[in-house]
Amino acid sequence: MTYLSRVRINPLRAASRTLLANPRALHGAVMAGVPDQAPGDRILWRLDADHPRRPVLLVLTPAKPDWTHIVEQAGWPDADGEHYAIRDYSPLIAQLATGREFGFRLTASPVQNTSTPDKSSPHRTKTAAELHHRSYRIAHRTAAQQLTWFLERTPRWGFTVPAARTDVPAPGLEPSTTDGPPAQEVRITDRSRRTFTKPGTRTPVTLTTATFEGRLRITDPDLLQTALLGGIGPSKAYGCGLLTLAPLPSGQR
């Protein structure tokens, strides 16, 4: 059974500031909440910080977790209300059907593999030469590149992004020409670039992410289920790859 958790974070506590600033530290806190991890278990998480005073940690786990340690260290342990919620993911999976539409959110790390990068750090060049690598993994840094990366890959994830819904223009205001493809129901709501180090090494890790939000239409329920449970793109240990779905408002269905 799979579970989706929602954990409230108090950004004013010292431990919280460490978790919010360092994806590696938050990864460790997430893993500490899942007992009896089996080899091959995929644990996905995402930090939603739309409201800077009320960041929320979302975690998808293959076993029922316990987030008491995060509440005690980085939440409001003595406050009223629900500190974290854990829900069975099966009802959502059961709703997946071809043609059905959902709202979605995804934080991902858009990258490209290339054998001729425009810029390459001395460390990357040395490592590639030592290991005889013929390609590099380079992050997409512009919003246009990141959006293209996302839209080009949606078919392999089992969905498409419909064209944006617009009102019919008034007579005489129709555009005379149409430049480029029609707009689609997706936007980038956040972009970030963070650098941190792993334990036992001084080599920095740079993580470039983009958060996508919009509306999707299911084309292959099995592929979408795989994307939901297995994650999308690289850097899953650092808060990338968790695709979440939400029912659309009645007027957008």
Rank of each mutant, 00 (worst) to 15 (best):
T2W: 15
L4V: 13
L4T: 05
P11Q: 00
A14S: 12
L19A: 13
R24A: 12
H27C: 05
M31C: 06
D36T: 04
A38D: 11
A38Y: 01
P39R: 08
L44A: 07
W45H: 12
W45C: 01
W45S: 01
R46Q: 13
D48H: 09
P52K: 04
R53S: 13
P55S: 10
L57M: 06
V59Y: 01
L60Y: 02
L60F: 03
P62W: 08
A63K: 12
P65I: 07
P65K: 03
D66R: 10
G75K: 02
W76L: 04
P77G: 05
G81W: 06
Y84G: 01
R87W: 02
R87S: 14
L96K: 05
A97Y: 00
R100C: 01
E101S: 15
F102Q: 04
F102V: 03
F104S: 05
P110Q: 09
V111K: 02
K126D: 14
K126S: 13
E130M: 12
E130I: 10
H133V: 01
S135L: 05
Q145H: 11
Q146G: 15
E152S: 10
E152Y: 02
G158C: 09
F159C: 07
T160R: 11
T160N: 08
V161P: 03
V168F: 07
P169D: 11
P169R: 08
P171V: 07
G172S: 07
D179A: 12
P181I: 07
A183E: 15
R187F: 07
I188W: 06
T189L: 07
T189E: 10
D190H: 14
T195S: 15
P199C: 04
T203I: 15
R215W: 02
I218G: 01
D220E: 10
T226K: 12
I232F: 07
S235Q: 15
K236C: 00
A237N: 10
A237G: 15
C240E: 11
C240S: 12
L243T: 05
A246D: 13
P247N: 11
Q252W: 15
